[in-house]
Amino acid sequence: MDALSTEDLIHAESVLYHHFFCYVKSMALSCAVHLGIPNAIYHRGGSATLSDLIADTGLHASRLPCLKRLMNVLTISCIFTASNPPATGSSTTGSLSSREEVVYKLTTMSRLLITGDDNKLCSMSPMLHFLVRPLTVTPFFGMHSWFKDEQAASKSFFEMAHGCDRWEMTSKNAEDNGVLNEAMVADSQLVMEIFLREAGGKIFSGISSLVDVGGGLGGASAAITRAFPHIKCTVLDLPHVVSQASSRCNGTVHFVAGDMFEFIPRSDAVLLKWVLHCWGDDDCIKILRLCKAAIPAREDGGKVIIIDCVMGSGPQDPVSKETHALYDLYMMYINGVERGENDWKKIFQEAGFSGYKIVSGLGIRSAIEVYP
C-alpha cells in the first residue's frame, strides 16, 4: 500500500470521526425536541437567546454552558441558525448581557419540529421520537451478528434483538403501537401535502373511491378527502391500529379492521404509501395481486397508487442519495427493502399488472401509478 500523505491522513481521520459521531447528532436533535427548544424559539417570535431558552424550558441556570454546546452542534448542522444581536438590540433577562448572547433562530428544518401549532403544516417530532429511541436503535447493535449468523436468514435483526417481529411488537406493546402510529400520521401529513400539491390533481382524477392499505390512523386519507371531498376513503389496517382510530378524521374516513394479506375492499383505486418497502418481493406480489382484484380494469380507471422510494429517482444531490441509502439500510432491520425502478417493474409484472408510471419530484419518495 502506498504511503499516505499527512494531508490525506488528517482528512481521513476527520471524516472517520465524523462518521463515528453521527449518532451524537441524532441524539442531540432528539434532546432538543424533548426539551422543547424549537417550540421555545417559535413562541419567542422566531428568535431566542440561551437565557431565553433556559427560562422557557425550565432548565437550571447551571445548564447554560451545556445548552450552548448542544446548540452549537445543532447550528453547525443547520437545524438552527445563530447570530450575534445588534448593539442596539433589546435587553434580555439572564446572567449574560445581550451583547454577549448569541441569538438562535429557526430554519425550515426546525420549523418542522414545532408541536402544537395549528397554523403549521405538520410536525415531524413524532417521527423523530419513533426513530431515535432505544427500541428502534437497539437492533442495529446486533447487525454484525445477523450478517454472520446463517441460521438467522429468516429473521430480521429487530427480531433477534427483541424476540418478535416488528408487527408483533406493535400488537402487544401499546406504547410502541402509539408511538409508531403517531409517527406515521406526522409523516403522512408532510408527504401528502407535497404529493397533493405536485401530483394529486392528475393522479386522483376520475377516482370516486379509494382504499388506503395500511393507512394507520388515517392521516393520508384525511388529507385526500380535504382536497377531494368527492372521494370516499377507506382505511384498511390491523384491529389494534383501527381501535385507536375511531375518533380520528371527524367521520370523513371509514375504517376497516383487516389483514392486507387476506383481503382488500373494492374501490376505484388502492393507495399503498410506504407499505411495500416493509416486505420482501414475494409478500409484495401477494399484496399487489389482492389490490388488482379489488379495483376495476385499466380502461375503467382502476389503478394502484404507490408512494415510496424509487432508488435512483428524484433528487441526486449527495444528501438525497445518502438519505436513500440510509433509508434502505434502515429498512433491513425488519427485512424490508427500498427498490429501484427495475425492481419495481419486476414485481409489477409478477403481480399481473400491465404498466406503470413513476412521478418523481416529491423529494426522497416518488409516486407510482400501477395499472391492471
Rank of each mutant, 00 (worst) to 15 (best):
K232P: 00
G163S: 06
K155C: 10
S171Y: 04
L180Q: 13
A220Y: 01
A223D: 11
D187M: 13
E168W: 02
P139Q: 04
S154I: 01
H240E: 13
D149W: 02
F157R: 02
A183T: 00
E168H: 10
T136I: 13
A186F: 02
C249F: 01
V235K: 04
V253M: 08
G142W: 03
K172V: 14
V179H: 05
L135Y: 07
Q151V: 01
L190E: 10
N177G: 11
T170E: 14
E175F: 14
R226S: 14
F140M: 12
N173M: 04
L236S: 02
F147Q: 07
M184F: 09
S221T: 08
V137W: 05
A245E: 05
M169Y: 09
S156A: 10
E150Y: 06
P229H: 07
F157S: 01
E182Q: 12
F204T: 03
E182L: 07
I194R: 12
F158L: 07
S221H: 06
Q244G: 02
F157W: 15
F204D: 03
L238D: 02
S188R: 00
T225R: 07
V242Y: 07
N181Q: 15
G218N: 13
R226K: 15
A199K: 15
V242F: 09
R197D: 15
F141E: 11
I203K: 06
S145M: 12
F158R: 02
E150I: 11
F158V: 03
V185S: 09
V241D: 06
T136P: 02
W146V: 04
L135V: 14
R248I: 00
F204M: 12
A161F: 06
D237P: 00
V241N: 07
R226W: 00
T138W: 10
